[in-house]
Design a protein around this nucleic acid. Structure first.
Lengths: 156, 156
DNA sequence: GCCTATAATTATAATAGTTCTAAAACAGAA
DNA sequence: TTCTGTTTTAGAACTATTATAATTATAGGC
């Protein structure tokens, strides 16, 4: 499930990190909560700027280090940007992304809708692909590329 | 349709370029044929190295310029690499990619299989996403992430 | 075939994003 | 508290890509 939009207090994150064998530091807490509260998947630099603004005396290198640690421990995933820089996402499920051609932004399809699409994928075809190619599918990532015909409802 | 595995003589490429309002140059011919003959989607640098080996006195800048021109004219697409550098593909349809976690390589699902999956996507869900989000889906890109359980059949 | 206008190529410099380095600060266990 | 290994940090280094500006090539008109 997505952690988006949940309250994330320090204790909760502490035990989450603990469960993933990640040391708790104020920087990691800051990065993780900043990432998890984003509706649009941010780049490392966007996170750094956001954190610089809000307070926290955190360095860019640490943002990169932390994101890497989060990804390695399964608390985040790194998404390929169509453009230059990588984007990060605090949710680790299969899910759907929307790329807005106009702005280049990358965001989620709401959970329910996304799940509906994933649930309706033709499993027999996926199975056939696995069999014929000798490939084991671990994750399916779908990106819907296009543009908004009306204004998106809310922006961070 | 994919241009992969087709014979690409100079005349054919010439008229293809012409149809897409692209001037024909020996460098563009070289880049395009090199790209179209790849089964695995190469990075700009991989193409440059391949072309340097085979002959052709072509500069890295030109590889980038040409790839950009091809993409802009619709003869290729730029794919986001999970990692650092972009990958390119001479085919421009919706289609499925396979990312091998073990090697990081990106390749196509064979046309027939891929089409089968795309044809079996639940259209009503896509329509619902478009309606609810006010988003017009231009292209669907699916990536199957996992690893080979047996050796891939052939490598370039 | 030759000329010309326009566009493409090239080496190089510049930039952007990311990773590396080595020293200082910190977390967690004893 | 003290110790040990980990994390943070500023800055350097590196890699992928784009910009620059001079040179060269293409396509079309003659």
């Amino acid at each position: 499930m997505h952690q988006h939009h949940h309250e994330l207090d320090e204790a909760a994150v502490h035990s989450l990190f603990c469960a993933h064998s990640l040391r708790f530091t104020r920087q990691r807490f800051a990065v993780y909560t900043a990432l998890a509260s984003e509706k649009v998947h941010p780049t490392a630099d966007q996170l750094f700027k956001k954190l610089s603004r809000s307070d926290s005396g955190i360095s860019l290198a640490t943002v990169y280090n932390t994101l890497e640690a989060l990804v390695k421990s399964g608390l985040a995933q790194k998404l390929a940007d169509g453009g230059t820089s990588a984007r990060y996402d605090a949710a680790v499920d299969d899910h759907l992304h929307i790329r807005d051609c106009a702005t280049g932004s990358l965001s989620d399809v709401p959970e329910a809708l996304g799940q509906k699409l994933l649930d309706n994928l033709p499993q027999h075809v996926l199975k056939q692909i696995e069999d014929e190619l000798g490939f084991s599918i671990g994750r399916v990532q779908i990106e819907l590329i296009g543009e908004y015909t009306r204004q998106a409802v809310e922006v961070n």
